[in-house]
Design a protein around this nucleic acid. Structure first.
Length: 560
RNA sequence: CGGGGCGUAGCGCAGGCCGGUAGCGCGCUUGGUUUGGGGCCAAGAGGUCGCCGGUUCGAAUCCGGCCGCCCCGACCA
């Protein structure tokens, strides 16, 4: 490609609103332009890199038996109504009506379409297992897109779907993806770790996320260096140790605690550790009952020194949405903000969820549902009971690992891929069944697996840059070679460019006559091919010594 | 959705309080000069000052509404 005709422009300054390195550099280097919030155009350079990433994904998918296809971006809402997601997913789903007034959906993922195909095509166990995939545009109306290509609303994703007759088959395809994903990220030059994750709106059984560790990540990961346990904080578990578990229950007592509305203040006031207190957290959950959404007040109790994990709580009550309760709602059930207590609150329309550490923890201080008063020596079972007792606490730095007891550590990460064991959630809902060997109709067992190509590109950019600009791994670089022609060397550069093209090497040739050498070099930097070959006067004079091949971080090809 | 900020040339910004000719740097065009890290000189092109309404003789500037974008939080995977 001749740079004189390359569509795109390098910028000296990044747009003021670009926060992350990857965003700044991708814009400055002429890879992307923003059209609207979370909506980008991908210029020729970016397209080339994306194509390379997508071809790597194709190769790895094909290697585990995948067949590429293409499914539509616009779906009739009917199939989403069949699985219930039309009702379950909120404003994140793009919806509109077609000219005939029919409800339509912009694809946010493709389980429904796959399942519709499956019920029309798969009839017999003889057609299974199968693996299909496509690379297609998705729309997710994130309430808050940000960070350039890291978090966008319109994006392209490689998503694959496994179809099996039995659970062993699903397991096999799941772990095949697990390995294939590591291969894909490694070939793109990106180090990732796999963590156990929440199944979220996919509603499956087992899920892993592939995380690029970076401070810009929006997910918190919980890691154990001793045994290798890794999980998204949303689902991370840890070993719970009760404090004074064998202490005998003491009599319940109401004490005056004026102005003491926080756990910290309470512990200080009573001169006890925070671990000897119980914390009440008030939430309101939207729960689907039949076709209807109802709001339920959630009264959650965790030990005072720990934090509520909203994902765990949300899963425990099967909530579609969860938000903090307003003060009026709290008062309405007979509780008092700052002095909340599970003892003596209204129970109708209220779900009391208690962390499983609480029943093992005797004599905790808690609120008295009366401004200015707390109870001491509350004991679960004797003083109050819950509708649900389960783990609803967030793991944190230093907590003991559930596997080995060593101290856990947290890190930030960006989710670049995920794999889900869906099971029969979609096939059962949409009646996608096959006739098995034993002559029985059974729902197809499914898995779904995604990697966002733009986000992956952004993460690679985030990882591979230096003070001059981007320095792509050769597998992702838009061009393998960058030739800069300087005065006195144009003829030689033309020749090299022709030779490289003839040899099938992807070359970007800066044939522009106007810019000064400094400009051309600087223009080459943010583009950052892995090599820059310069042809100039010195080349004409000194022959091969005029060739320079700077080898920087990210370059992955031996010098020719 | 809550809080905050910003919309003036392709990019980065000034002007706004105190209403009266639309400005700077970079980029772009033309000519000259220069040529190994964004050099220099000269001449140009390019703007419904986000949109709608109001106040006023007169609005980029003051007032109201709306839209868009960014950040923090909530949310989501």
């Amino acid at each position: 490609m001749r740079m004189s005709h390359l569509f795109g422009q390098t910028l000296r300054e990044a747009p003021a609103d670009a926060e992350f390195k990857s965003h700044q550099l991708l814009v400055r280097a002429g890879f992307i332009r923003q059209l609207g919030a979370g909506i980008f155009s991908y210029l020729p350079l970016a397209r080339r890199s994306l194509t390379k990433i997508e071809n790597i994904m194709r190769e790895e998918m094909d290697a585990i038996g995948g067949q590429e296809m293409t499914m539509p971006v616009v779906h009739p809402a009917d199939i989403w109504k069949e699985t219930g997601r039309w009702y379950e997913v909120g404003s994140e789903m793009g919806r509109f009506k077609d000219a005939g007034g029919r409800d339509m959906v912009l694809a946010m993922t493709h389980e429904e379409v796959v399942t519709d195909l499956v019920r029309n095509i798969i009839h017999s166990y003889r057609q299974l297992p199968a693996l299909i995939y496509h690379i297609q545009t998705k729309w997710r109306d994130e309430p808050r897109s940000r960070g350039g290509l890291i978090r966008v609303r319109e994006f392209t994703m490689k998503d694959s779907y496994s179809l099996d007759a039995d659970w062993e088959g699903l397991d096999k395809q799941y772990w095949a993806h697990y390995q294939a994903y590591f291969n894909i990220f490694r070939r793109c030059g990106l180090d990732v770790i796999a963590v156990e994750s929440d199944v979220g709106m996919m509603g499956g059984k087992l899920a892993h996320e592939f995380m690029y560790l970076s401070p810009i990540g929006e997910d918190t990961l919980v890691l154990c260096d001793a045994c290798g346990y890794t999980a998204n904080r949303q689902v991370a578990v840890f070993r719970k140790q009760a404090e004074d578990a064998d202490e005998a229950p003491k009599p319940l007592e109401k004490v005056e605690t004026p102005g003491v509305t926080t756990i910290q203040a309470l512990a200080q006031f009573l001169n006890i550790p925070e671990s000897k207190t119980a914390k009440a957290v008030f939430m309101v959950a939207t729960i689907t009952e039949g076709q209807e959404d109802v709001e339920k007040f959630i009264f959650a109790v965790v030990r005072g020194d720990m934090d509520l994990n909203e994902t765990k709580l949300s899963n425990a009550v099967k909530a579609k949405a969860l938000r903090p309760a307003h003060e009026e709602e709290i008062r309405a059930i007979g509780a008092s903000p700052g002095y909340g207590s599970p003892i003596g609150v209204r129970r109708e329309g209220v779900i009391v969820v208690v962390d499983d550490l609480i029943p093992a923890s005797p004599n905790l201080a808690a609120g008295a549902n009366e401004d200015g008063y707390h109870y001491i020596n509350t004991n679960y079972g004797r003083d109050y009971t819950a509708d649900i007792v389960t783990d609803i606490v967030a793991a944190a730095d230093g907590y003991p690992c559930s596997e080995c007891g060593a101290a856990l550590r947290t890190e930030r990460g960006v989710e670049v891929g995920n794999i889900f064991k869906l099971g029969t959630r979609y096939s059962a809902a949409m009646n996608a069944t096959f006739l098995d060997k034993d002559g029985k109709q059974k729902p197809v067992i499914m898995g779904s697996y995604g990697i966002g190509s733009g986000r992956l590109l952004a993460c690679v950019a985030e990882e591979y840059n230096d003070e001059y600009g981007l320095c792509w791994p050769i597998t992702v670089a838009p061009y393998q070679v960058h030739i800069v022609a300087l005065r006195g060397g144009f003829d030689a550069a033309e020749q090299v460019y022709a030779d490289l093209q003839a040899a099938g090497v992807e070359a970007l040739y800066d044939d522009r006559t106007a810019p000064s050498p400094g400009e051309k070099f600087n223009d080459a930097e943010p583009h950052r091919r892995s090599f820059a070959h310069h042809r100039g006067r010195s080349f004409a004079q000194a022959g091969r010594r005029g060739i320079e091949a700077p080898h920087r971080k990210g370059a992955g090809l031996d010098s020719a």
